[in-house]
């Protein structure tokens, strides 16, 4: 009897776990392994992947022109994260402290754009910002400017696009952290003689730091890879690591090199997540 129950339990666990395990194996583990193996392969004269163990791809990653793009990519990701925090914090605070119906409305303002493909929205921005686009036309009509301004194709526009795309990833963890903040603590701080600014730096900021932290991870990592934003709004003047990878798989047709670049990106990601975990970050708020 006991045996039967045990067997039953084992079977039910297996049936529950196996589809997920299979899914993970087929769509995540195996492709990752494939990329990892490929990063050690070479190519023949027609750029076909040839299996021979080599570190050639990794050596090429240290090329000065690549190093410059890594730095640029990190700078763009850093700026994107910084702007997301500066804009997102007050907004998340507003949502968390707003009552009932208005709260849902504010929340939807963040979520609704999310329902449209970000590629389409970024194309929308390019049309809006382009030399003969709506913004320039409007400014000319209002006689605010005489000549068209080139908004597109610089690092600033790329950062703008990244902030626009990744903003919800910052808002959600921030909102969760601020929501948890006990209002009594703010009253206690005020009661003990702290003005608004002191309460913010001594109580609010430390207690919501986890939200800033996980939001930053969720913004910084994708910002290294969002090649289409850098492509469409930056026009090749503000490439990120994602652009390098995309180019090797597309026009460059050097899959092993692309795979090695991907491994670097995965490496950076793991490093940041590990750092986050080391600093006491909550893995669950990253969706892990």
């Amino acid at each position: 009897m006991v045996m039967k129950t045990k067997k039953g339990a084992a079977i039910s666990i297996a049936t529950m776990v196996s589809p997920v395990t299979l899914w993970m194996a087929f769509f995540i583990a195996i492709p990752l392994l494939y990329v990892a193996v490929m990063s050690f392969c070479g190519t023949d004269e027609n750029y076909n992947v040839v299996f021979r163990l080599t570190l050639e791809n990794y050596r090429r990653l240290l090329d000065p022109s690549y190093l410059q793009i890594y730095m640029q990519s990190i700078l763009i990701a850093f700026l994107t994260t910084a702007f997301c925090i500066l804009l997102g914090y007050p907004f998340a605070f507003l949502i968390a402290r707003t009552k009932s119906r208005k709260k849902a409305l504010l929340y939807m303002l963040v979520i609704i754009p999310f329902w449209t493909n970000s590629l389409i929205r970024i194309y929308g921005w390019r049309t809006f910002l382009s030399a003969s686009g709506m913004l320039n036309t409007l400014l000319m009509k209002l006689n605010l400017i005489d000549t068209q301004i080139d908004f597109l194709y610089n690092i600033g526009t790329t950062v703008f696009g990244m902030v626009y795309c990744l903003f919800p990833f910052m808002i959600l963890p921030l909102y969760t952290a601020i929501e948890k903040l006990d209002i009594n603590l703010l009253e206690a701080s005020s009661d003990l003689g702290a003005r608004g600014a002191s309460t913010f730096f001594h109580i609010i900021l430390p207690l919501t730091a986890s939200g800033i932290f996980s939001g930053s991870i969720m913004v910084f990592i994708p910002a290294l890879g969002y090649f289409f934003v850098a492509d469409i709004l930056g026009g090749g003047n503000s490439d990120v690591i994602g652009n390098l990878i995309e180019r090797q798989f597309q026009s460059g047709n050097n899959w092993p090199l692309g795979a090695a670049l991907s491994m670097i990106l995965i490496g950076i990601t793991l490093l940041l997540v590990k750092l986050y975990q080391k600093c006491g970050g909550d893995m669950e708020s990253l969706g892990v």
Binding site: L185, E187, A188, D191, A194, R195, H202, I203
Partner: peptide, 20 residues
Amino acid sequence: KEPYERNVNTVFQSYALFPH
């Protein structure tokens, strides 16, 4: 007068100790 300007202090029902 704001709470921080008043010479009174409060002990809260939930204690409201700063957890960090």
